[in-house]
Simulated scan of single mutants.
Amino acid sequence: MTDTAPALRHSAEALSGALPPLLVAAEHLANSALPGAHGRRRIGPGAEFWQFRPSHASDAATRIDWRRSARGDDLFVRETEWQAARAVTLWVDTGAAMAFSGDPARETKSARARLLALALGLVLLRGGERVGLAEADLPPRLGRAQAELLTMALATEAATTTEHGAVDLHAAPTGGHVVLFSDFLGDLSAIETALDQAANRAMRGILVQILDPVEEDFPFDGRTRFESMSGHLSYETLRASDLRTDYAARLAARKDHLAGLARQSGWHATTLHTDRPASEGLLWLYHALGEGGR
């Protein structure tokens, strides 16, 4: 394991460990997730007992637990937990653009994306789901050993000279779930192709746009030189503030385009910022995966 892997794992463990209290506060998830591999707290086919509940008029007689019902005058149904593990494939953009941070004291987009991906993976693995990566020859699998492999694969920022990574979902299981982490500020043709392929293979997913607040607010004024993280592009202006309105419009249009792509594919899309608590993003992601169904 690399030198940075233990630190990343510790941070992700801390972040994912904070999820249960957040789920308690989120009413719609309080009864549907647990921190360990103890089922999904959802009614469904399985062997593990979940709870007894009073029977409804629509319940068939074969669903009545007569032993429990014999203790009183009411009839009860025995419910089991859903135990069909999902396959969730994660992809984190390894392009040079993700190494950007507008403040030395703030983590890079890549660091936040990798932390969220690993924390989400750990929570899903604890819940009995299968988790893997799209670009690390790491197909979705269960268990603690998979958590170690995810940690090693996500531990360091990839050294690359390309501005943005190209997503490839050919190894993601048909019918599974996919979570893509990127700033999505580059050419979207590869993303559009991936979403088309995913739709044809009944895959659901989430587009997670990670932005630094500087990229959102464009707080530049006067003479400014802009350079891409790869060094391949540069632009200099004497009046950066004159670009602010057009920049904001183009960024808004990009977000709208991403949201449209997600809707067409039956996916979710969100924008998360590196100056906000990572726990907020993790809760949103877990909720969105829950809404995605099975």
Score class of each variant (00 low, 15 high):
Leu185Lys: 02
Glu148Thr: 10
Val214Leu: 06
Ser265Gln: 15
Thr237Asp: 06
Glu215Arg: 11
Ala145Gly: 14
Asp168Leu: 10
Ala147Ile: 08
Thr160Ser: 15
His257Phe: 07
Asp217Tyr: 00
Phe226Trp: 08
Arg250Trp: 07
Ala248Ser: 12
Gly266Ser: 05
Asp221Gly: 01
Gly143Arg: 04
His164Gly: 02
Arg254Gly: 03
Phe220Thr: 01
Asp221Ile: 09
Ala253His: 13
Thr245His: 10
Glu157Pro: 12
Gln209His: 00
Val208Leu: 09
Val167Thr: 09
Phe226Pro: 11
Glu227Ile: 13
Thr270Gly: 09
Met152Gly: 10
Thr193Gly: 00
His232Cys: 05
Val178Gly: 02
Leu211Met: 12
Gly266Asp: 05
His257Thr: 14
Glu216Leu: 14
Val178Pro: 02
Ile210Ala: 01
Thr237Phe: 09
Leu180Ser: 04
Pro173Asn: 10
Gln197Ser: 09
Gly231Asp: 12
Met203Pro: 01
Ala190Glu: 10
Leu185Glu: 07
Ser228Asp: 13
Ala159Gly: 08
Tyr235Ala: 14
Trp267Asp: 03
Val208Trp: 01
Pro219Cys: 06
Met229Glu: 15
Thr162Ile: 14
Leu142Asn: 07
Thr162Asn: 12
Val178Met: 07
Lys255Trp: 00
Thr270Cys: 14
Tyr235Leu: 15
Val214Met: 07
Thr237Ala: 09
Phe184Pro: 02
Ala145Arg: 15
Arg141Asp: 13
Thr224His: 13
Gly231Asn: 12
Val208Gln: 04
Ala252Lys: 13
Arg223Val: 05
Gly222Gln: 10
Asp183His: 02
Val167Gly: 10
Leu150Met: 04
Asp221Leu: 02
Leu142Val: 00
Thr245Gln: 11
Tyr247Phe: 13
Met152Ser: 13
Glu236Tyr: 00
Asp246Lys: 05
Val178Phe: 02
Ala158Tyr: 00
Leu238Asn: 12
Thr245Phe: 03
Ala240Ile: 04
Leu211Asn: 11
Ile210Trp: 03
Gln197Tyr: 08
Thr151Arg: 01
Lys255Val: 06
Ile206Tyr: 01
Ile191Val: 15
Ser241Met: 05
Gln197Pro: 00
Met229Tyr: 02
